[in-house]
Computed example of a mutant assay.
Amino acid sequence: MWTRTQPVPPASAAPALASTPGTEHVLRRLEWTVIRRLDGLLQGDYRTLLRGAGLDLADLREYQHFDDVRHIDWNVTARLQQTHVRVFTEDREMSAWFLLDLSPSVDFGSGEQRKRHVSTEFVAVLARLLTRHGNRVGALLYGAGVDTVIPPGGGRRHVLHLLHAMQNRPLAGDTGGTRLHELLASAAAVVRRRSTLFVVSDFISEPGWEKPLGELARRHDVVAVRLLDPMELDLPDLGLIPIRDAETGEQLLVDTHDAGFRKRFARIAAQREAELRQALARAGVDTLELCTDDDLVASVLRFTDLRKRRSRLPGAGAPVSPLSAHLHVAA
């Protein structure tokens, strides 16, 4: 199917992962260029990164759209004739898990970065931000199957261990297709305590992942972190180019100079985008889209803004507008 088919990147595209810098170098660079900036910009918004499950009553306020109906205080509602909900002090001692899709389609990138590089940088930044505030992070890694489980831990060394596991692993061969439902089912079996789960994937997968994702979302706080590349949405006029199925290796030549072909490709891509976003919305998860040609700081800030609006924290701003056509946070 075309959903597993991607243009072969040009020679100027990102180098193979074997030539990527060491994990210490990657983390140090991100600490100076991204994490320090985010620490200053997030300030009091840090608690929007993780949703706790504390039971200490902090306040009462009027019910608003997206509030959890289980938090309605019916006694106060009956007395004031206006629906009110309880606001709790959240437990920040929660674990975050990264469910990492590292299947062959994630190795694609039409520009300077591949989707796998974006995934690595996102995990490095979020894991370091969370562990710096005393939380623990763990991970499940999926290639041809779920082959690595990293239990939750804290501290910089643990983050380096996680990044090393992501970078220093053999690339999966022809897998016959990504089965994302296997990763989600493994997470349901491994992650017993309520946690925040980041599902980092391009969601180019065989069908059947929607139901287990929704089941996870009913038990945990789930964020779908979707990786994408601009060329997956709109093919430029590059003449005759090879198109390769990222997971079976099958190739064919297409003429991108044909305007009709490019229009059909864009129409099918737009249809898949709409179906994917509807499926994520039905699963009840927040969605963060990360494009290979956009800025990670802007992405994380937009994510925290979405979380802030969802939880109706004081100081929440207006609805967030996308900074580009390819990267935005979708409710």
Rank of each mutant, 00 (worst) to 15 (best):
L296G: 03
L100T: 00
A188P: 06
Q64E: 13
A53T: 12
I204V: 13
R302M: 13
V320T: 15
R136A: 13
P322M: 05
S110P: 09
L184R: 02
G54Y: 09
G153K: 02
V191P: 02
F66R: 11
S311M: 11
R79C: 04
A188L: 09
Q271V: 10
L290C: 03
V297P: 05
V200P: 03
R92M: 10
W32K: 14
S95C: 03
A259V: 15
A266I: 05
R302A: 14
P15K: 01
R302L: 10
G249S: 05
D107A: 15
P314V: 02
A187R: 01
I241T: 11
D286T: 10
R264C: 07
E121F: 05
H65L: 14
A78R: 13
P15G: 09
H161S: 13
G44D: 14
C291R: 03
L49C: 02
V118Q: 06
L57H: 11
R179S: 11
W74L: 12
W97K: 00
P7I: 07
L197D: 06
R272T: 04
H117V: 11
F203R: 00
A188Y: 06
R128A: 11
E112L: 11
H220S: 08
R156K: 13
V254I: 15
R36L: 13
F108V: 14
P170C: 03
L60H: 15
V225R: 05
Y46C: 01
R114T: 15
G173A: 06
R309N: 11
P230R: 06
A185Q: 14
S205L: 05
H117M: 13
A124Q: 06
D295Y: 02
A330F: 13
L160K: 02
S103Q: 01
R262V: 00
V329Q: 08
R272L: 03
R28N: 12
S186H: 14
R282C: 08
T175L: 08
Q271C: 06
H257W: 08
Q43D: 15
L162Y: 01
L100V: 08
R4K: 09
H158A: 01
L163D: 01
T175V: 14
L227S: 04
R157Q: 14
E273Y: 01
I204P: 00
L252C: 09
L163I: 03
R267L: 13
I35Y: 02
P319A: 15
E247P: 10
G109L: 03
A224E: 02
D56K: 12
L213K: 00
W32T: 12
L296P: 02
M166S: 09
L100R: 00
V87F: 12
V254C: 05
V69F: 10
G145F: 07
L80C: 00
G249C: 06
Q43S: 15
H84W: 08
S205H: 08
S324F: 09
P236L: 05
L238D: 09
D59Y: 03
L197R: 04
A13L: 03
D229M: 11
V320L: 14
R29D: 13
A127H: 00
L171T: 14
L30D: 07
V190Y: 05
I243L: 15
V87Y: 12
L99W: 00
H220L: 05
R169Q: 15
L240G: 07
T196M: 01
V34R: 04
S110R: 06
Q64H: 11
G54A: 12
